[in-house]
Simulated assay, not measured.
Amino acid sequence: MWSCLGGMAWFSVGKSLLGCRGAAQRAGTLTMSACSSASSGRQHVNGVDLFYEQTGRGKHAVLLLPGALGSTRTDFGPQLRSLNKESFTVVGWDPRGYGRSRPPHRDFPPDFFERDAKDAVDLMKALGFHKFSLLGWSDGGITALIAAAKNPDLIHKMVVWGSNAFVSQEDLRLYNMVRDVSKWSARMRQPMEEVYGAHLFAKTWEGWVDAIAQFAQRPEGSICMELLPLISCPTLIIHGEKDPMVPSFHAQHLLKHIKGSRLHVMPEGKHNLHLRYADEFNRLVEDFLEE
């Protein structure tokens, strides 16, 4: 749906991947599945306990980065379930203050994207991955851009979609349209209210809108524009041509400023293209990562 708020899972709530669970210990509290190579747990990173899910047994590690207020379960069910488990080891995580990485409650200091990027990279290192690829949706895409720019030796490849490196006046208008969650349909609110409760969801969402709007006050509205030339990993940008909340100029800007990047446009794709067209998206990503 809209830029940076990829976590809005009214589109699709990722189904539980970890049926027939058995208990084991690894990297903190961990649940291992007896019937698959799936696990979940909490890892202490940078002063907080970050929830993660891991599936697959491939040599190529991939980190999934969710959108605003998002989590592995709400944002990446089809990817955790269906990405090739022989080729990839796929890790989904809940950024601090989101989903099951609570406490603490989410806050939005000026550097919250940089904080998420550091948490994401340090989580993967704590889990024993020394080189890995990034799949970032919306806010998670912004986090991935920052992580790739600041850790060129660690990031193998990157895929981002529904993401932006700056906030324009048009973006501000779109964010303000969705600020008041009481005006959303019950169907749209339900998944997030199930995770956070109605009051905390509304409060956290308003906090996000205020935080993202502040970038518009920076020169050129930059979130991470100055970092794009530092990205050296192969990068695939995916854009849904019918995305109602991420204008195509954002994808074009990334393409222009990330050296060697490529852009794939999905004509029917909206903001949730990886959920709505999961099979097509997963094939596209697998082909890119395996090149």
Rank of each mutant, 00 (worst) to 15 (best):
L30M: 15
L30I: 12
L30S: 11
T31G: 04
T31D: 13
T31Y: 05
T31E: 15
M32V: 11
M32G: 05
M32S: 10
S33L: 12
S33T: 06
S33E: 02
A34K: 08
A34Q: 08
A34R: 14
A34V: 11
C35I: 05
C35G: 12
S36W: 08
S36E: 00
S36C: 15
S36L: 09
S37G: 07
A38F: 02
A38I: 08
S39G: 10
S39N: 01
S39A: 15
S39T: 13
S40I: 14
S40T: 10
S40H: 02
G41H: 09
R42K: 15
R42C: 08
Q43C: 14
Q43E: 15
Q43H: 07
Q43I: 13
Q43W: 11
Q43T: 10
Q43D: 09
H44T: 07
H44L: 02
H44Q: 12
V45C: 06
V45R: 02
V45K: 01
V45T: 01
V45D: 03
N46D: 15
N46P: 02
N46E: 14
N46F: 01
N46M: 05
N46L: 10
N46A: 04
G47V: 01
G47C: 06
G47F: 04
G47L: 00
D49Y: 14
D49A: 09
D49N: 14
L50R: 00
L50W: 01
L50M: 13
L50F: 06
L50N: 02
F51M: 07
F51S: 06
F51R: 13
Y52V: 05
Y52R: 02
Y52P: 06
Y52L: 14
E53S: 11
E53M: 13
Q54K: 04
Q54Y: 00
Q54E: 14
Q54W: 01
T55K: 03
T55E: 10
T55Y: 03
T55L: 07
G56D: 12
G56H: 07
G56R: 02
G56V: 08
R57N: 13
R57M: 04
R57D: 06
R57V: 02
R57L: 03
G58F: 03
G58M: 12
K59H: 07
K59N: 10
H60A: 05
H60C: 01
H60R: 09
H60P: 08
H60E: 08
A61V: 11
A61M: 03
A61N: 06
A61H: 12
A61I: 03
V62P: 09
V62G: 14
V62H: 06
V62F: 11
V62S: 11
L63K: 13
L64D: 04
L64Y: 04
L64I: 00
L64S: 10
L65I: 06
L65P: 00
L65M: 11
L65C: 09
L65K: 04
P66L: 10
P66I: 08
P66C: 11
A68D: 04
A68W: 01
L69Q: 14
L69M: 14
L69D: 11
L69C: 04
L69R: 11
G70T: 03
G70S: 06
S71A: 10
S71G: 10
S71D: 10
S71P: 00
T72C: 08
R73Y: 11
R73V: 07
T74S: 09
T74W: 00
